[in-house]
């Protein structure tokens, strides 16, 4: 197993952990962290698999840079929403029932 492949397999693990976290965690900050873990996992699969035979691939590196920026943007928006929700309701969890009707 080359190092690139190892990174990709770890990335797969991280992605699944993060995905389960987004589904299962209650605390909103932990959910945001889980989403970031999920994204990082996908990025590791992308770069890891592309260099599984040793040589790095600039195309995937550029894609990951793009992806990181998108993830930063999404995280910032999520944090803004959570912060504002906390200010209005004092809660850091989403209510159980979806809506009253």
């Amino acid at each position: 197993m080359t190092s690139g492949l190892l990174f990709a397999c770890v990335g797969a693990g991280l992605f699944v952990m993060g995905g389960s976290g987004v589904l299962l965690l209650k605390h909103l900050l932990r959910r945001i962290l889980a989403f970031n873990l999920m994204g990082s996992g996908a990025f590791l699969v992308l770069v890891g698999m592309a260099q599984r035979h040793g040589i790095a691939d600039p195309v995937t590196q550029a894609m990951v840079l793009t992806g990181i920026v998108v993830a930063v943007a999404a995280t910032a928006l999520a944090l803004a929403l959570v912060r504002h929700l906390y200010r209005l309701s004092g809660k850091l969890e989403l209510p159980e029932a979806a809506d009253d009707d």
Partner: peptide
């Protein structure tokens, strides 16, 4: 969650 799954799929296709 949806776009994350899509992104992993793109990574697998590229691989």
């Amino acid at each position: 969650l949806g776009s994350g799954s899509y992104l992993l799929a793109v990574a697998l296709i590229y691989a």
